[in-house]
Nucleic acid binder design. Structure first.
Lengths: 106, 106
DNA sequence: TTAGTATATAACCATATGTTTATATAAAAT
DNA sequence: ATTTTATATAAACATATGGTTATATACTAA
């Protein structure tokens, strides 16, 4: 692949918050406010991280009325599956979100 | 894997020069002065990039008298092979180095 | 020991990055 | 239409990063 594209990919992954987001989206698509709640970060901060991931084509978005749901993309990277598989399991966080009533939606 | 370890890995890969170094080392181990010549960058700059790669355990070093040869490591990362395979082929650069008489060594 | 070569480290500086606060946009509900 | 909710963008600031120049270290050769 092109080095520039690869650099953009790894830059997008070179941040703990963004790896957390990818790890969460591996389980299921989530909207911004859900990520805000799980990660305990401000909404603008999460939005900017999502923008970077989207620009690197690691996630894609889908609008559903007020909400924008983000999900894993990365199909342009032949290695993406191997990298996602190395991310820690976040099912507990997703569980907590559902139990705290927050799921679908905010 | 641990998110902190993964973050360090992707930070180390999030730079075009360092991806170039990895792409070159995929072909064969190289010493600092060879990388300097191929990449047309200053020696301190290359050394600092190598340090980052080494700290992330993506490369290892082997001393041979005055020279320190760097080579690919990355064995702690289950996805490393897939990622290295996506790097562009650099055999032409290696060829040029050998023809310019520079190989083994400096 | 001294001089030379290969590499590492430190100090400095310019640019990039991530966070926060404030504001804008877009859709929904009233 | 106006208000509310969800998300995006902008401005400002502190910290991180990468490059350069200068210097230190490690090994070799004489």
């Amino acid at each position: 692949m092109e080095l520039d594209q690869l650099t953009e990919c790894y830059k997008a992954m070179a941040d703990k918050t963004r790896l957390n987001i990818l790890a969460l989206l591996r389980h299921e698509e989530l909207c911004v406010c859900e990520l805000v709640e799980i990660l305990k970060m401000t909404q603008p901060s999460i939005s900017q991280h999502l923008r970077k991931l989207k620009q690197a084509k690691l996630v894609k978005e889908r609008r559903n009325s007020q909400w924008i749901f983000y999900s894993i993309d990365g199909e342009i990277y032949p290695f993406i599956k191997a990298n996602l598989d190395a991310l820690p399991d976040m099912s507990e966080k997703i569980e907590q979100l559902k139990q705290s009533g927050g799921k679908v939606c905010c």
